[in-house]
């Protein structure tokens, strides 16, 4: 029995000691940032740079834009929100939940078709290749919830081949999941963001950006955020940030 008591005490000690640093950190300047999953990597990298230069700790939560939006409307304690579209930031603005005039475009996404299937080199192909009989399943992000999914459907519609390929669709919750479907060989190809395949091999071709509405990703500063939030968003529009975003496959048209 005493051994049990000792084990419990030890566990308690570990639990308490793992909580304490968080409290200590909260005493300094901390910015909490909500980021749509697809923009997580560049924002993370930039947050690291920002921490070094400004001495402000950035705590990042990531998830889908819809989920983060819902959490924000329910009073989630975020200071800055990086969405995967511009609709949700606009809605927050309408609701008066953001700092006036803080909504801005931080990145514009590019759509691509990717595969890792051997013998299915996409290098010089175009969208009509998706009709090919060798392609049986196409993973896309859910068009009703994900901006890249909607853009993919738009592009296929504009090309006039949506009806031919629609029955090959399987839907991922977001681009990462659509990518996972193809990466694990469960789908033959996926239509995802250029940023999704950062650091991955395989072959891909870009989808002409003129045949779908631009995938504009906007950010907002939420009402009641500390002044550091303004510094952070300003830093995310700096030339350094542009370099990082383009490295991950975004353009930063303004």
């Amino acid at each position: 029995m005493t051994r049990l008591v000792r084990t419990i005490l030890l566990l308690l000690f570990v639990a308490v000691s793992s909580i304490t640093p968080v409290k200590a950190e909260a005493a300094g300047r901390v910015l909490t940032v909500a980021v749509a999953s697809n923009a997580l990597r560049p924002v993370q990298e930039l947050a690291g740079l920002f921490e070094e230069r400004y001495g402000v700790k950035v705590r990042i939560s990531s998830g889908s834009t819809g989920k983060l939006y819902t959490q924000i409307t329910q009073g989630a304690p975020f200071h800055v929100f990086f969405a995967a579209d511009k609709r949700r930031p606009e809605l927050l603005e309408e609701k008066g939940l953001i700092e006036r005039g803080s909504r801005f475009t931080y990145a514009v996404g590019a759509l691509i078709v990717w595969t890792k299937r051997p013998g299915l080199d996409l290098g010089s192909r175009g969208l009509t290749f998706l009709k090919d009989a060798r392609i049986r399943r196409i993973a896309v992000a859910n068009p009703s919830t994900a901006p890249y999914g909607r853009a993919a459907v738009e592009a296929l519609e504009r090309k006039g081949i949506l009806k031919d390929v629609q029955n090959k669709f399987v839907y991922g919750e977001n681009v990462s999941q659509a990518f996972n479907f193809a990466r694990t060989g469960n789908a033959d190809v996926c239509i995802v963001a250029l940023s999704t395949i950062y650091g991955q091999d395989g072959s891909y071709f870009p989808v002409d950006g003129a045949i779908h509405s631009p995938i504009v990703q906007q950010a907002v500063i939420l009402r009641g955020a500390p002044p550091e939030a303004r510094e952070f968003t300003r830093f995310l529009s700096s030339p350094d940030a542009v370099t990082v975003f383009s490295k991950y496959g975004y353009s930063v048209a303004r």
Binding site: G66, K67, T70, N142, S144, T145, E173
Partner: peptide, 8 residues
């Protein structure tokens, strides 16, 4: 249900 929440 989840998709409905995502679509607001």
């Amino acid at each position: 249900l989840y998709e409905n929440v995502e679509m607001l």
